[in-house]
Amino acid sequence: MDRSSFNRSAYLYLLPALAIYGIFVLFPILQTIYYSLTDWNGLTAPTFLGLQNYLNLFQDAVFINALLNNLAFIFFYSVLAIVLGMFFAVLLTSAPLRGMTFYRAGLFFPQVMASVVIGMVWRWIYHPQYGALNQVLRAVGLGAWARPWLGDFDWALTAVGIVGTWAQYGFCMVLFLAGIQNISSALYDAARIDGAGMFQQFWYITLPGLRNQLLVALISTLIAAIRIFDLVFVTTRGGPGYATLVAGMYLYRNAFVINRVGYAAAIAVLLTILILIISYFILRLQRTQEEESFA
């Protein structure tokens, strides 16, 4: 690149975006890392602790429990949502259907709604007295099953998790739909001629053809499960007890309720590292696969 062709005005175009991003996002990230190494209550000067906050976190039973709850949410957000999304995507493309775009739009809809609204909608469904769920159970003679779902120690996590699945699977479905439509129909025709059944077609053609979409669905649902906060805040605030307490909720409590700011910063750093590692590995998986397919 010879120097005369450099376009110095480029910096001018980048400057406003870079300044806002730098001041309000990038620099605070560095501060988070610094605070995570200190004991700070948000008022007096922070005292340097080294890695003590991190060591404490791994011995903090509440935090470990919160991480395990995040793990449970991974089952609802990623595993269940991807399986259901795949089921509907295959169903939608199994035959030329009228109204396909209509169904797609309807099933995708929860994904665009604010999680606060979704939380409110489901609080209402789970309401002990007026909620639709308990009313249906009573109506079909399963009244013994009726319970205050979100206040029940054994069921609260599952109840919130199902909301997560409900909100995520439409998104997975839309990703897979786009992928399936890109798979050449000649592949299926050839497989049918060779006598492959529905399941074999799915296993040998659809699934491998959707690898990229599966990876994207995996990244975004995993990140959503690790970050989950809004939904828990609105439905249970982490309760009853610590039954639905997740890492994001624990971070919020430490940072803004009980003012253990340094400790909260350490949680933030751990969550961020976790998210970056997951993104990195899955993106790398995607890349190796692309290289293979070009080879």
């Binding site: 870079l18 605070p28 994001g248 803004f256 700011v261 933030a268 750093v269």
Partner: peptide, 24 residues
Amino acid sequence: SIFLLFLIGLMVPTEAYIIPLYYS
């Protein structure tokens, strides 16, 4: 390099910067 800097912001969650940002 500048593009990579923006990519960082694409990956990190709000939780990564919100605590110091609030106090600042």
